[in-house]
Design a protein around this nucleic acid. Sequence first.
DNA 1: CTCGATGAGTTTTTT
DNA 2: ACTCATCGAG
Length: 730
Amino acid sequence: MDITSIIESLNEAQRTAVTAPPHAMLVLAGAGSGKTRVLVHRIAWLMRVENVSPYSILAVTFTNKAAREMRGRIEQLLSFPAGNMWMGTFHGLANRLLRRHAREAGLPESFQILDSDDQYRLLRRILKQLELQETSWPPRQIQWYINGHKEEGRRACHLQESYDPAERQLQRIYREYETLCEQSGLVDFAELLLRAHEFLRDSPAALAHYQQRFRHVLVDEFQDTNSIQYAWLNLLTRDNDNLCVVGDDDQSIYGWRGAKIENLHSFQRDYPNHQIIRLEQNYRSTGNILNAANALIDHNDGRLGKNLWTDSGAGDPIALYAAFNEQDEAYFVVDRIRRWIQEGGSPLECAILYRSNAQSRQFEEKLIAMGIPYRVYGGLRFFERQEIKDALAYLYLLTHRDNDAAFERIINTPTRGIGARTIDYLRNLARAQQLTLWKAALHARTANDLPARAQTLLGGFIDLINALSERMADRPLHEQIRLAIENSGLLEYYRKEKGEQAETRVENLEELVTAARQFEAEPPGAEEDLSATPLERFLAHAALEAGEAQGDPYQACVQLMSLHSAKGLEFELVFIVGLEEGLFPSMQSLEQPGRLEEERRLCYVGLTRAQKLLYLTYAESRRLYGKEHRARPSRFLNELPAENCQEVRARANVNRPVASYEAAARSGFEDGSAAAGGSFRLGQSVFHAKFGEGVILQAEGSGAQARVQVKFAESGVKWLVLAYANLQGR
DNA sequence: CTCGATGAGTTTTTT
DNA sequence: ACTCATCGAG
């Protein structure tokens, strides 16, 4: 048995973790310390050396991407497919469990998954039904309320009736929502986890079975687990002490969506025999970057403690740039990227990271102007697009007529003359008689309560769905989908729509057929849920994995993304921008100390993304929500050791610089550095080719519009546009 | 149904 | 400032 390939490339700590005898283990893996590597090699070790069957292993991740990567790397290491290993996201695994035991878990065999947009729509519908104003009951907040409770394991019936009328109302909405989901066979994301937990908790036989089966449970990014996820893991492993978790408390950045950093403490309490292994050697960044990151995170309290180190040398210092405003900041960053590419750097190895997505625009504009290709992460993903969701809604309704969410979405899409009146009538009928919308429609067709025209049209819709359903039977999946988008009129509808967007929509619909074909060819995950039809499996897949944001993997693009999205990634050249109080750390986090620590961890995550070069920038003035704001530099900048940083431009110690980087560069001062004399301040002496010696009195504008007022000794006071005046500093 | 006016909200994201 | 959604008029 060749085990050298499994352990030869590992360092001491990694090897300890990989080869430890099976028992509870906590691997504290710092950024860039080979976390995934340890997980992958650990699994390989279990199989090769401990003779563990892949059947006995459960490996859990947070994203599909991470699950895919792990599976790929294991298969590569062992050179055989790890087909029957349960490996996936919490939600994916919960789905699998519930499909197998739908009945016992109290769900219909063909339950369908609601994504958060579906959930949002459903809640709005309930509000309308309860005649509540969206302004006083914002659906987003209700969504948050419901999911929050579910993530803590609380159903509506568990909530104590409150004396607070607002709270009572929320509970009522929650109850109503549960009823509706139950009726329509719908399961939202939080429900998947909650159901899976309740099912195991309440079915001793099933619990025993899975406890027996999963001799080894491994969890990635453990610091991101929420209460119900931990409870589920604990159910499965508490009797066998067989939970191995990998995580980093310093990279916990999802507290705001329910992640419980406390789970790390719960783990230590619940598995008293656990072993802790720290991975502190970093293979990613230079010494300067790591030192700064360590110093920053040291400002947080109650850490489990960890100090990253590297033996790869100090590297360049971290560069700080104080921009005049957001325009200047963007110009500076993009100009540095231009140089990087010019010197042979790859755009793919270069990332701009920001706290809020709205910040991307400035950079995009400048990148476009410079003709540098870029990619922004974080938009709508494939299965979230309107036209795709429309098509999926047809498929949902075709497989399950009681899916009210789907019914409501497509009853009049494409427009077929079934208006609000008819739909309201159906809703009332459904509510009054405890029917689903589909059943209400069947009633209405014969009841003669509707105007004749509406009745006919409604009948037409029912016939359409039924006929389509028949025609689709026994066809291959991609054929079914093609039939659905064509016969429903959806394709035609988007074809006729004008505008560029419509074109992409048609393309996307066609792409959906391709995606289905691909899904048939190589179904992701094991072929375990044979209970479901291919179409049902495809729908679950679509809900659980929203797909990539945008294609274009062929072009080497500069990467723009939020700091959150950057977690887990690395780049040679990284810019963290907008380091201002109120922006990063964000305004909302300033009040709560816990939130502020999370912001600091987010900054830590950002710093540790950089392999070689790291730039930190902030703007002294920024347009935000239509108003000009002056902000102090982020406190995080002050928390970095001076010896690891270097200001790109020495700044005037009294007066603020009035010239932007952009104007300075254009007017011939190559990088705007003080040494080159490019930083103009109020009161500074300057020289102009025609007007001679002068002193700067005032300044206004920025970027290409930046102007200064200069009092010339000979020619008097003049306003000059910096970009053209070619002023020389003195 | 489509268009333009009006008004509210505006950190971060995966499933 | 800008986006997004809803609402009323044509």
